[in-house]
Design a protein around this nucleic acid. Structure first.
Lengths: 120, 120
DNA sequence: CGGCTGCACAACAGTACGGTTGTAAAGATG
DNA sequence: CATCTTTACAACCGTACTGTTGTGCAGCCG
């Protein structure tokens, strides 16, 4: 089950929509921050709210979206609700994107400051 | 240089924004389709327009966004403009997301059909 | 039991984004 | 040179999303 059948090349429409939707879930800074914070371990809404300095409602809403996408798990504990990473694959995604961003930034910096100081 | 320095854990804000922006670029079905089509090789705007059945302006706009994100390259050839994948990393991303979607779908199907393969 | 804490849901305003229409620039064609 | 093709840009509209405000609900505590 861990092996991936190479995906059909002309991606079927429904799959395209699902993929795009999933990417869009990761396309908000607040949600990236939440996932990044949850990398340290499970946390309650209040802890996340405090860590990110955002409103409780906003944090709760984004956590709901992440949960709806199956990326985080929800667990009631006493009066609080504990969220945790449910799909570790998101970290690989983020890391890859970070790599891409770095390459892009490196390229831009290379343009601005060529390793060889431009002889005038 | 191909290896990635483990990214700082509390992701710095600007990096978070860049990552989110990059994810958002991939969060549109049309752009996924364009990248998927470009997987077969470089193509002009007209070819992509024909392959996807979308308007020329729309295709051009999305290609511009992909190009702005450094994911595709642009090359003028005669009267046409040829686009090609510039950052092959996007495919790994898409494949990983496809895997995630599959796991999710498998889980849902498992819930709907607990033990019955029921092929017709 | 009354009050307090922690979380989620609903409604709303502001904004961003996608798709369309119209048009202009660059190059081929005859 | 006139015209057709190919692409990009700008303006517009409708939709979707984000963040806030207000509120309801469940579980602790005195």
């Amino acid at each position: 089950m861990t092996e991936l059948t190479p995906i059909a090349h002309p991606l079927p429409e429904p799959l395209i929509d699902l993929v795009a939707q999933r990417f869009r879930v990761l396309g908000e800074p607040m949600r990236i921050k939440l996932l990044d914070r949850l990398r340290d371990g499970a946390a309650t809404v209040g802890e996340l709210q405090d860590a990110l300095g955002a409103s409780q409602q906003n944090v709760s809403k984004h956590l709901g979206i992440l949960h709806g996408a199956g990326m985080v798990s929800r667990t009631k504990r006493g009066n609080s609700v504990v969220y945790a990473i449910d799909d570790p694959g998101v970290f690989e995604l983020c890391d890859q994107v970070c790599g891409g961003v770095r390459r892009q930034l490196a390229g831009l910096e290379a343009l601005l400051q060529p390793a060889e100081p431009a002889p005038s």
